[in-house]
Amino acid sequence: MKLMTPGPTQVRANVLEARSRSFCNPDLDPAFYDFYKETCDLLEKALRATDHKAFILGGEGILGLEAACASLTEPGDRVLVIDNGIFGKGFADFVEIYGGEPVLFSTDPLQAVKPEELRSFLEKDADFKYATMVHCDTPSGVCNDIETLSRICGEFGIMVVADSVSAMFGERLDLGNADIDILCGGSQKALSAPPGLTMIWVSTRAFAAMKNRKTPIRSFYANLLAIKDYYKNQWFPYTMPVSDIMGLRVALDNFLSDPEVYDRHERVANATRKAVKEMGLELYLNSGMSNTVTVIKVPENKSADDIIRKLRQKYGIQIAGGFDYLKGKVLRIGHMGENCRMEDVNETLEALKNLI
C-alpha cells in the first residue's frame, strides 16, 4: 500500500533497516546515553535552536502536546488557545485536564491566523501564563506563521507552546527567529520515521517555569522535568524505545543531507494544488495552505469513504478523509517527507481523477 496520508508517511529503506538492528539495554549502556544526546543535539541543529534543549519521548506526537500542558499548567492558570482548526482548539482539552482555564482566540478556519488580529486581542487582554498555537493544523491543512505569532506573544510576556507535528521538516522553521518555549513534533510526519516518538524542544524559560511551580506536576509520564537531566544523571524516567530511536536518527540524517528539502516541499505542494484545480476540484482553504498536505472538498454527489476505499482497493493508494466537523467533507493528500515526490503525487492524482 502506497501511503499518501498526512502522516504516517512512507519510510525509506535505510530507516527500516536501522530499526531492525540488535539493540542494547538503554537504561544501563553509557553508549546509548551518548547516542541519544547526539541525536537530540542534531534535532537542535536542524531547527536552529539557540536556547532550547531537545528530547525524544517514547510516545506518538500527541504526548508532546499533553506533556507541554501538563508541565506548565497549574490550577487556575489562564491559557490562551489560538484556534483556527481542530487541533488548535483541541489544546483547550489538555489545559482543562490539568486545571487551567483555556481562553479561546478563534479565527477564520479557512485561512491562517492574522498577526495583527492577535496583537489587537492581546492589547485588550494579555493576562496569560502561556499561549498555544499550531503550525500546520492537519485536518484542514492551514499553516500559521508561528515564528511571528510567537514573537507577538513574547512582546506581552506570554510563553508559547507550539504544535509543529505535521509541519516541521517540511515547512521552514527557525527556532532562533521565534519566541517559542516548547515546540512539539512527531516522528511519523515529514521526518518520515514510523509512528511512536515525540520530539520536543524546551527553552530555558519553560524549564524555569516548571521548577518554580507552586504545585507539583500532575503527571509522571508527561512530566518534562523528569527527563531534563537524563545525561548528567545517566538515568531515563522510563525505558527508551531503542529501535525506534535508531530509526529516527537515520531519518534525521536523511533530512540533514538533503539541502533541497524545503524547496521540494514547496514545489510539490504548488504543483499538487494546480493539478487539483485543473481536475475541476475545489481546495478546502481560501489561503494559508501548508506545503505538507493538500485538503480537497469532496465533490457533490460523491462519498469520501467510497473514494478512499476505491483508491485503496483498486490502486493500492491510501489517502485520508476528514474527522470532527470535517468528517465526510474533505479528502487529504499528504506530500510530506518521503511522500514529497512528484511521481508519487502524480500517481495519486491520476488515480483520484479516474474516480471522480
Rank of each mutant, 00 (worst) to 15 (best):
Q10K: 09
Q10R: 13
V11M: 10
L16N: 14
L16T: 12
E17D: 14
S22V: 11
A31V: 09
K37Y: 13
K37C: 10
K37W: 11
C40H: 05
L42E: 15
K45A: 09
K45N: 10
R48F: 15
K53F: 03
G58K: 13
E60D: 15
G64K: 02
C69Y: 01
S71I: 01
L72V: 03
T73R: 00
D77A: 11
I86Q: 07
F87W: 06
G88K: 02
G90K: 00
A92L: 04
F94Q: 03
E96Y: 01
S106A: 14
P109D: 04
A112D: 05
K114A: 15
E117T: 05
E117R: 08
L118C: 08
R119K: 10
E123G: 09
D127S: 09
K129H: 09
A131H: 06
M133D: 00
T138K: 04
V142T: 14
C143Y: 12
N144T: 11
N144Y: 11
N144P: 09
D145N: 15
D145L: 13
D145Q: 12
T148A: 15
L149P: 05
I152D: 06
C153E: 06
G154L: 08
M159E: 03
M159C: 05
A162Y: 00
D163M: 00
M168F: 08
F169M: 02
F169T: 01
G170Y: 08
R172I: 04
L173C: 13
L173F: 15
G176D: 13
I182C: 04
I182N: 02
L183G: 00
C184R: 01
G185D: 10
G185Q: 12
K189E: 06
L191V: 05
A193L: 06
P194Y: 12
P194W: 11
T198R: 03
M199W: 07
I200Y: 03
I200L: 09
W201S: 03
S203G: 13
S203I: 08
T204H: 13
F207C: 04
A209S: 14
N212M: 05
R213T: 04
R213A: 06
T215V: 14
I217T: 10
I217F: 11
R218K: 15
R218Y: 06
S219Y: 11
F220G: 08
L225N: 15
Y231Q: 13
Q234A: 15
P237F: 11
T239V: 07
T239G: 12
P241A: 12
V242D: 05
S243F: 02
L248D: 01
A251L: 04
L252R: 06
N254M: 08
F255Y: 15
P259T: 12
P259E: 10
H265I: 08
V268E: 10
A269M: 08
N270L: 14
A271V: 01
T272E: 08
R273G: 14
E282I: 11
L283C: 06
L283D: 05
N286P: 00
N291W: 11
T292D: 00
V293Q: 03
V293P: 01
T294H: 00
I296A: 02
K297W: 03
S303E: 04
Q318M: 13
Q318R: 14
I319V: 10
G321W: 02
G322H: 09
Y325R: 14
Y325E: 12
K327F: 05
G334S: 04
H335P: 03
M336F: 05
D344M: 14
D344G: 10
N346Y: 13
L355E: 07
L355G: 08
